[in-house]
Amino acid sequence: MPEPLTTEATEAARALRAEAALLSIRGLSKRYHAPRGTVHAVENVSLDIPRGSITGLVGESGSGKTTLGRTLLRLVEPSAGSIRFAGEELTSLSDRQMTAMRRRMQIIFQDPVSSLNPRLKVKHIVAEGLRAHGIGSGSERRERVAALLEEVGLSPDQMTRYPHEFSGGQRQRIGIARALALEPEFIVADESVSALDVSIQAQVLNLLLDIRAKRDLTMLFIAHDLSVVDYLCDRIAVMYLGKIVETGPARRLVRHPAHPYTRALLSAVPQPDPLASRDREVLEGSIPSPLDPPSGCVFRTRCPRALPGCATEFPPPVAAGDGHIAHCINL
């Protein structure tokens, strides 16, 4: 049985990862106060995103993935914790300083329809960030927009059209071009292929890989499909009810999942061979309300291997080898 990491070992491992990390999160929480109580959307999350990598964030709907992604950019203000980007603490920046920082941090939204202003032409949508930051003249911005559209697989001649004149995949490419306009170092891609047909998903995923290689970008790719994340990402973090329950290199985590929640997610991925035998791990019930999360391990109410000790406290990290860590006392 793997041994839980000691406090010293945990801190040493985190220090090594943080040295190479573009984004380092410690104890990050986001809570919303509602009439019925406090919503624990993100609770005490610590995560390092290595420079130049694509880190996948997976989990069921309601796990807090989108809230975490938006909190990293301070589109949603954190309730507690630290967000360090390239060594700079984001939570201590003023609004003006954060506006300047957002040139280096951008987001690709989930819905390629509602995220684009239907009253603006594509050239104005893509150049919106350039105008907001006072970058370039009008002609320089048009040249920049034309180059960006070509980079994402669209024609510069299409810049005078409106969003409704494009397909879903083309609209998502416009959203990607807009995110690239300011030449950011870090991008949050929030479920950026989930609304697309499978064939179009593959094209957009390959586009993101090409952009990462060309620009040396760092990405947080939010998704619920582990097969997509396995294809695209270098590392994976699994999130359940506001907490990270497992992290590790993508290939190792998918081939050798340690946490029971990760195993259940993987067993739900459709297989191309209908005759292949497989051991399904079907979860009973639905994800609990973040208004009243379970004590201890938040997954224990649905876990087929839950022990009495799971209700006491959230499990410490357990090393599963090669940078692979899971929060479970029953490994």
Rank of each mutant, 00 (worst) to 15 (best):
E284Y: 09
C303F: 06
L220G: 02
K123C: 04
L266A: 11
Q172F: 09
M219W: 03
R305V: 13
E143C: 06
E183V: 12
R171I: 08
A258H: 00
I325R: 04
A13C: 12
S24T: 04
G248I: 03
T218Y: 03
P317Q: 08
V318G: 11
E151K: 15
L217Y: 03
D95G: 04
E246I: 01
C328F: 00
R212Q: 15
A86D: 15
G321D: 12
R14D: 09
K123D: 08
V76S: 14
G56P: 05
L148M: 11
Q106C: 01
R14V: 07
R96K: 15
C297Q: 09
L148S: 12
S277D: 14
A34L: 11
I200L: 03
L283R: 13
P156W: 13
R119P: 10
S79E: 00
D273R: 15
T160D: 15
L130G: 10
D111R: 13
I25H: 04
P316R: 14
T218K: 06
P270Q: 13
L116K: 13
S92V: 01
M239K: 07
S267K: 14
F166K: 07
E11M: 06
K243A: 02
L307S: 13
G64F: 03
R51E: 10
G52S: 12
D111P: 04
M105K: 08
L275G: 09
C233I: 01
L241D: 03
S139W: 08
N330L: 05
R235L: 05
P304I: 12
R74C: 01
I83G: 12
T99V: 12
A41H: 03
R235I: 00
S277I: 03
A20M: 11
T38P: 06
L57C: 04
Q110Y: 08
E89G: 09
R131Y: 12
Q158P: 04
G242E: 08
D279P: 07
E281C: 08
F186R: 06
P290T: 09
R251E: 14
R305S: 14
S267M: 14
A127E: 03
R235H: 09
P274K: 05
H40D: 10
H133S: 15
G64I: 00
T91W: 03
L120A: 11
